[in-house]
Amino acid sequence: MVKYILRRLLMIIPVLLGVTFIVFSLTYIAPGDPARMILPQDATEADIAQMRHFMGLDEPFIKQYFHFLFGFKSPSDDSSFSYKGLLALDLGRSYVSNRPVFRTILERFPNTALLSLFALLLSVLLSIPAGIISATHQYSVPDMIVSILSLLGLSMPAFWLGMILIWIFSVQLKIFPSLANPNNLKSLVLPVITLATMNTAVQARMTRSSMLEIIRQDYIRTARAKGLEEKKVIRRHALNNALIPVVTVIGLQVGQLLVGAVLTETVFSYPGIGTIMVDAIQRKDTPQILASVVFVAIVFALVNLVVDIVYAFIDPRIRAQYEGIAKIKINNSLGKSK
């Protein structure tokens, strides 16, 4: 088990390096010269060249990538051009607000996390029971309702759903505010529903099909044949196995939530990492774009890591794979010593 976790931890290093490399290359090839953007319109070519030097933009690509990872010491006296690099969570300052980019991100990230967490809870609470009922009562009216709703949820663009909810609940019924902020729980209701819809749909479909597959297996028939109540068959025998693929999907969905938050936050003008990103892109604030994209990508990778590890704890087959190998090895070595 420890071995599996260690291996999984090691596997994340090349992934993170690759992700940072891709994002960095994208901003490197981006048209538009940051030095020119910072300086006033009437700056001379010499000023721009000097600014490029101060910002480290005249260095070769690979060197700039190393700066990006490990930090950059500006040759100018102005320390605001220096930064400690991604590993120290410091990528310099925003061109627009002149604040350290990661300070803004770390301030706002908890808001996004809060929204995503609520959405995750809501989607799990709705989708798993819905999927189970749907599978255990296949082709019944509740199954039809769940299937139709989940197809609709899967097809609805989240930003549109958000606006429709605003129109119904803020404009017409005046129950919930149309702008959301993390200090007002009531204002979170609509964005949480918006964000949770797609996930609920995906998870409900997954639970249903996984459950349908499991309840057709022989061991379930055995459980029924020995006279076990249907409820117990489902709870004790079917559910554990049926939920394994669902956990994977939920794990993948956590990442999707972070990304879906970009759209939901824009619709509800919620101060999260999504709105930072969209603002930064619209204002061509390169350090802020770079930092927020890399940050979300890293959080996404880490969440997947955690999910994989949790998965290994839940699924005895994965656990057995590693423990089994360990036991065989021990047995072999015992055999040799005899």
């Binding site: 992934v15 994208l26 972070l258 990103m277 892109i281 979300v296």
Partner: peptide, 24 residues
């Protein structure tokens, strides 16, 4: 396959967002 894994490690819309942000 390793390059694919890396591409998959970046959520779809986020990656598209980054490309559009970079290229305009």
């Amino acid at each position: 396959m390793r390059s694919t894994d890396i591409l998959l490690a970046i959520p779809n819309i986020l990656f598209a967002l980054a490309i559009v942000a970079a290229l305009g």
